[in-house]
Write a protein that binds this DNA or RNA. Structure first.
Length: 256
DNA sequence: ATGGTGGTTTTACCA
C-alpha cells in the first residue's frame, strides 16, 4: 500500500492538483496539510468522487489537515489532551490495520520568537500523545509537514541555515525525541544521500535552483520496518502550474 | 541588496 503526505497550501487552489496526482500516484492513504478551509467548505464530494473516504479538521485562512483513504477512516482524534489549541494541525485515525497521525507542525517563524516557543511546546505535547498511541498499537505512521529538516543532509545550504528556523538544534532534538519513541524516518531507510528535498521557497526561484529542505516526513513505527519497500519524494507536481511549495512524500508498504 | 512569492474574508499576516 502507498502512504503519502502533501502540504497543499490551500486545498481550494490545489484541488485540481490533488485530483491529478491521485490519478497517477494512486496513494491508498494521503495526508494533506494547510487545507486552509473551514469544515463547512471542505470539498468532501470531490474527494469522495476520487474513490476515497475523507476526514478533516480545518479552520478559515490558516492551517487545516485532512486524511484521505481507500479504506474507512475510524476513531478520529483532532484534539490532544493538554493542548487546548484552536489551530487545526492534528488528525489521528485508524485506516485498516494502521493507526495514522497527520501533523502540520508549527512553523515557528524565527528561533527565539513566541511562535518558536509554541512550536517546541506543541511538539512536546504531541509527542507525549503519540507515545501513548505507540503503546496502544505500534503499527503507527506519523506523517506530515514537520517544519524541521532532520539533519544537514536535508538542507541545500547548511551553512546559511545553521541554527535557523526549521534547522535549529532544539527543533532537531524535539524530532529526535519523537523518533526515539520507536519511529523511523522512512526516507532514510532507502537513501542516505544529501540533496533530497520536499519544500522549495516560492521566492528566489527556489525550485528551479533546487534551494530546498526535506521537511515533509513519513515516520513509520519500527514494527513496519520489515514491510517498507520504498520511500520517495515526488517532485513532479512541484513543477506544475500554480504549484504548492511542497512536494508529496511517499512510503510504500508490502501487505502484511 | 535585510529583498524576493504566494495564499488568504488582503492594504497585514503567515509561511
Amino acid at each position: 500500500m502507498r502512504i503519502a503526505t502533501w502540504n497543499v497550501n490551500s486545498l481550494n487552489v490545489r484541488l485540481p492538483h490533488v485530483e491529478l496526482w491521485c490519478a497517477s500516484a494512486q496513494p491508498d492513504v494521503l495526508a494533506l496539510q494547510e487545507t486552509k478551509l473551514e469544515d463547512a467548505k471542505f470539498p468532501r464530494a470531490a474527494i469522495e468522487a476520487l474513490g476515497y473516504h475523507v476526514a478533516f479538521s480545518g479552520q478559515k485562512t490558516y492551517n487545516g489537515v485532512a486524511l484521505m483513504a481507500r479504506q474507512p477512516i475510524l476513531d478520529v482524534v483532532t484534539d490532544i489532551p493538554g493542548l487546548d489549541d484552536p489551530q487545526r494541525r492534528v488528525l489521528v485515525a485508524t485506516v485498516g490495520e494502521l493507526r495514522v497521525a497527520n501533523l502540520y507542525v508549527v512553523n515557528g517563524q524565527a528561533v527565539g520568537s513566541e511562535k518558536y516557543a509554541y512550536k517546541l511546546d506543541w511538539l512536546a505535547k504531541v509527542s507525549a500523545f503519540l507515545a501513548g498511541e505507540l503503546r496502544n498499537d505500534p503499527r503507527l505512521v506519523v506523517m506530515g509537514d514537520f517544519n524541521i529538516a532532520p539533519d544537514d543532509r536535508d538542507v541545500h545550504d547548511p551553512v546559511a541555515w545553521h541554527e535557523q528556523i526549521l534547522c535549529s538544534t532544539p527543533e532537531r532534538e524535539a524530532l529526535r525525541r519523537l523518533l526515539d519513541l520507536g519511529l523511523l524516518d522512512s526516507f532514510r531507510l532507502f537513501d542516505a544521500d544529501p540533496g533530497h528535498y520536499s519544500w522549495w521557497d516560492y521566492r528566489q526561484a527556489g525550485f528551479r535552483r533546487n534551494l530546498g529542505l526535506r521537511i515533509d516526513l513519513v515516520l513509520a513505527g519500527e514494527r513496519l520496518k520489515a514491510r517498507a519497500r520504498a520511500a520517495t519524494i515526488d517532485r513532479i507536481p512541484r513543477a506544475w502550474e500554480r504549484p504548492s511549495d511542497h512536494a508529496p512524500a511517499l512510503l510504500e508498504l508490502a501487505d502484511d
